[in-house]
Design a protein around this nucleic acid. Structure first.
Length: 638
DNA sequence: TTAGGGTTAG
C-alpha cells in the first residue's frame, strides 16, 4: 500500500513572493524546458536544488515535469519522486497523474491504482491521461492485470462516468488484447462512436497475433483511411503467419498506393522473402531497402533481418559479409548469424561466433543457444553440445526450455544414443512438446529403431493428433525394418482419421528468374520428357561411379523395380534435372523442398555434384545441404 | 502530450 501524506505542507511562504505573476510564469516555463533536457538523475537533482532556491518546488506545473523526468530516467518512484510530491501543498490532477504514471512505468500497477483511489478521495477529478497511464500499465509486466483494467473501464463508463479522449479508448482496446481478451477489445471497438486508424490497427494486430488473418483482413478492408502503420501491420501479420506470398502482394499494393516505407515495413517484407528462400526475392528487397535509404550495414534491425534472409536463401556468405560490416550488432544479429551458420552445417563458425559474442557486452538469449546447440548437433559435436547445455544456465543464466531439450535429444539421438535421449526426456523438468518427441522420432529413423520410435510416436499422436508427418515417419521406420504389418496398421489409422498427406514438392529457380514447382511423380511440366531423359543419363553415369539406389527410402511394399521408379520421380530429382537443363553451367543449382530430403536423394545429389561438377544447394524443411565434389556440408547428419 | 506496426527458433 502506498502511503501519501495528505497533510498539507506547512511551508507555504514562497521565497520570492514579490515576483510578479508574468515573471513567475516565465521562470516556470524556463525551468520546465531545462528539466526537459535532463538526461540523468544527477542533472535532475541539481536542477531540483535550483527549483527549491527559487521557491518553485510548490508549483504544480514545475513539479509535474520534475516527476515525469524522474520516471523517464528510471528513478524508482519511492526513492525521490514521492518525497517531492509530498512537498506540494495544493496538488492538482496533473501532479497526481504524474506520480501515478511513475508507478505505472515501473510496472507497480497495484500501487498506482491505490494512489488513484487516494486521488479520488482528495476530490481530484482524473484526466484522460490518468486513465491511459493506468490502462497501459495493466497490459504491461508479467502479471496479467486485466482485472484492474476492467475496474478502471467500469469507473469510466459507470454512473457519473468520465468523458475520455480517443487515447483512453484506444489504450483500453490494447489493454484487453494484450491481456488475451480479444473479444473484450473488439466489444470496446464496436461500442466506440468515434474511431481512428489507431483503434483499427490495434485490433488488426490482435487478430494477426492469434493467427486469424481473415478477420484482420476484413477489418483492414473496411478501414477507411489506411496509413503506413496499418499497412505494415497487415504485411507483418502475413509474414508472421507463414503466408509470405500474401505479405509480398500486399506490400506491392502498398507501393502502388505510394504509401511510405520505413524500417518496420521492410523488416516484415524481408522476413517474407526469407520464408520464400529465393535469390530473386532477396535481390529485389535489397534494392528496395537501399532505395529507401535503409542500408543493412547502418541499420541494426534491417541488417539482422537481412542476415537471416540471406542465410535462409542459401547465401550464407552474403549473410556473413553483411554481418561483418554492420556498424552496430545486437542479440538478434548474432543469433541470426549463429543460427544461419548452424543451418548450413558450419558448426565451427557458429561456435567461434558465439565465443566472440560473449566477449562483447551482448548477452546471449534462448535463441542464441538454440543456434549453438543445433550447430553442435548437426556436426555431431556431442561433447561440446553437452558442455554448452550445462553452461547456458550456470554461466549465462538462460534457463533451458523445451526447445533446448529438443536440441539435446536431437544431439544424443543423432549420435546413436537413443536410450540416453529417451532418458533425458523422462527426467527433463519442463513438459516435453512435440519438438522434443519429434527429435527422438527423427533419430529413430536415422538409426532404424522401431521400438523407441513407437514410444516417441505414441506421445506425438497425443500432442499433435492431426499432424500427418509423424504417422508417415513412423510408417517409414517400420517400412525400413520390413515390418509391413505395422506399416499397414499406421496407414489405416491415418485413413480412419481422414488425414491427407502433404504432397512433396520442390522449387527451382530457372535462369529467367521464374520459380518452377515440381511435385513428386509430376509429369505435367512442359519439358517433362527432356527432364526424364536428363535424369536417366545422370543415373547411368552415377551407377558407373558406384551409386546404389537406397531402396529402403521407399516406404511401400512393392517390388524393387517399382521402388526404383518411385525414387527417380522424387520432386528434388525432377527439380535438379530441370536445373541442369536451364541454369548456367557455372552457377549453383538451388532447390527448396517442403519436406525432409530422403536418404536416396541425398546420396544421389552427392554423386551428382561429383559427376556434373555442379554445386547444388538443397534447403529442406530442416536445414541446408551444400553438395560439392561428391560430399555434403551436413556430413550425412540430417 | 499520453495510443497502433519490428528482426532470431528443431
Amino acid at each position: 500500500m502506498v502511503f501519501v501524506s495528505r497533510k498539507l505542507n506547512t511551508l507555504t511562504k514562497l521565497s520570492e513572493p514579490w515576483l510578479p505573476f508574468s515573471q513567475r510564469k516565465l521562470l516556470e516555463t524556463d525551468l520546465v524546458s531545462k528539466l526537459d533536457n535532463c538526461r540523468n538523475f544527477a542533472q535532475i537533482k541539481q536542477l531540483h536544488a535550483h527549483i527549491i532556491r527559487k521557491g518553485l518546488n510548490q508549483s504544480c506545473y514545475v513539479v509535474t515535469k520534475l516527476l515525469r523526468m524522474l520516471s523517464n530516467v528510471g528513478v524508482p518512484v519511492d526513492k525521490y519522486a514521492h518525497h517531492v510530491f509530498d512537498q506540494v501543498p495544493q496538488r492538482n490532477s496533473f501532479i497526481w497523474t504524474a506520480l501515478i504514471r511513475g508507478y505505472c512505468v515501473q510496472g507497480l500497477i497495484r500501487e498506482a491504482v491505490g494512489l488513484y483511489g487516494l486521488m479520488r478521495m482528495e476530490g481530484m477529478a482524473p484526466v484522460s491521461f490518468t486513465f491511459s497511464a493506468l490502462l497501459k500499465a495493466c497490459s504491461l509486466g508479467e502479471d496479467v492485470n486485466v482485472g484492474l483494467g476492467m475496474q478502471i473501464h467500469g469507473q469510466i463508463v459507470g454512473v457519473g462516468g468520465f468523458d475520455c479522449d480517443l487515447v483512453v479508448w484506444n489504450t483500453m482496446i490494447d489493454m484487453y488484447v494484450k491481456c488475451g481478451f480479444l473479444g473484450c477489445g473488439r466489444r470496446v471497438f464496436d461500442e466506440m462512436v468515434v474511431r481512428d486508424v489507431i483503434s483499427w490497427t490495434s485490433l488488426i494486430v490482435a487478430y494477426a497475433r492469434t493467427g486469424d488473418m481473415d478477420s484482420a483482413k476484413e477489418l483492414f478492408d473496411e478501414l477507411p483511411v489506411k496509413d503506413m502503420v496499418a499497412w505494415t501491420a497487415m504485411v507483418t501479420g502475413y509474414a508472421q503467419n507463414a503466408r509470405p506470398r500474401e505479405a509480398l502482394n500486399l506490400f506491392k499494393r502498398m507501393q502502388d498506393g505510394n504509401v511510405e516505407t520505413d524500417e518496420v515495413t521492410l523488416v516484415g517484407v524481408i522476413s517474407a522473402c526469407a520464408q520464400l528462400g529465393a535469390a530473386k526475392y532477396a535481390g529485389w528487397v535489397r534494392n528496395i531497402a537501399e532505395e529507401s535509404g535503409y542500408r543493412p550495414t547502418s541499420n541494426v534491425v534491417v541488417g539482422s533481418a537481412f542476415v537471416d534472409m540471406y542465410s535462409k536463401c542459401g547465401n550464407v556468405e552474403e549473410a556473413y559479409s553483411i554481418f561483418k560490416r554492420m556498424r552496430e550488432r545486437n542479440v538478434y544479429s548474432f543469433s541470426s548469424m549463429i543460427v544461419g551458420f548452424a543451418m548450413h552445417g558450419h558448426a565451427t563458425e557458429a561456435i567461434n561466433l558465439f565465443e566472440e559474442m560473449v566477449k562483447t557486452k551482448i548477452k546471449p538469449n534462448r535463441v542464441t543457444f538454440v543456434g549453438v546447440l543445433t550447430a553442435c548437433s548437426h556436426a555431431g559435436l556431442t561433447e561440446q553440445g553437452e558442455q554448452y547445455f550445462k553452461m547456458m544456465q550456470s554461466c549465462y543464466g538462460v534457463v533451458p526450455d523445451a526447445d533446448h531439450y529438443a536440441c539435446m535429444v536431437d544431439l544424443r539421438g543423432r549420435s546413436g544414443r537413443l536410450e540416453g535421449a529417451l532418458q533425458l526426456i523422462k527426467t527433463m523438468p519442463v513438459k516435453p512438446h512435440g519438438g522434443v518427441w519429434g527429435a527422438l522420432l527423427g533419430a529413430c529413423r536415422i538409426h532404424g529403431d522401431p521400438d523407441i520410435a513407437q514410444i516417441a510416436a505414441n506421445s506425438l499422436f497425443e500432442l499433435e493428433p492431426n499432424s500427418i508427418g509423424n504417422y508417415i515417419l513412423l510408417s517409414n521406420i517400420y517400412a525400413s525394418a520390413g515390418r509391413w504389418e505395422d506399416v499397414a496398421r499406421v496407414r489405416k489409422a491415418v485413413r480412419m482419421k481422414g488425414l491427407k498427406k502433404n504432397p512433396a514438392c520442390s522449387f527451382v529457380e530457372g535462369k529467367d528468374g521464374v520459380i518452377h514447382e515440381f511435385l513428386a511423380g509430376d509429369l505435367t511440366h512442359p519439358r517433362s520428357s527432356q527432364i526424364k531423359r536428363e535424369l536417366e543419363n545422370l543415373l547411368h553415369k552415377l551407377k558407373f561411379h558406384g551409386y546404389q539406389p537406397v531402396l529402403s527410402s521407399v516406404p511401400y511394399d512393392v517390388d524393387d523395380k517399382e521402388k526404383m521408379r518411385i525414387l527417380m520421380a522424387h520432386s528434388e530429382k525432377l527439380a535438379f534435372s530441370y536445373g541442369l537443363l536451364t541454369v548456367a553451367s557455372c552457377s549453383t543449382i538451388t532447390i527448396v523442398k517442403n519436406l525432409r530430403i530422403c536418404e536416396d536423394c541425398h546420396l544421389f545429389m552427392c554423386g551428382a555434384s561429383l559427376v556434373t561438377g555442379r554445386k547444388i544447394i538443397i534447403r529442406d524443411n530442416m536445414r541446408f545441404h551444400h553438395f560439392h565434389d561428391g560430399a555434403c556440408s551436413c556430413n550425412n547428419f540430417w
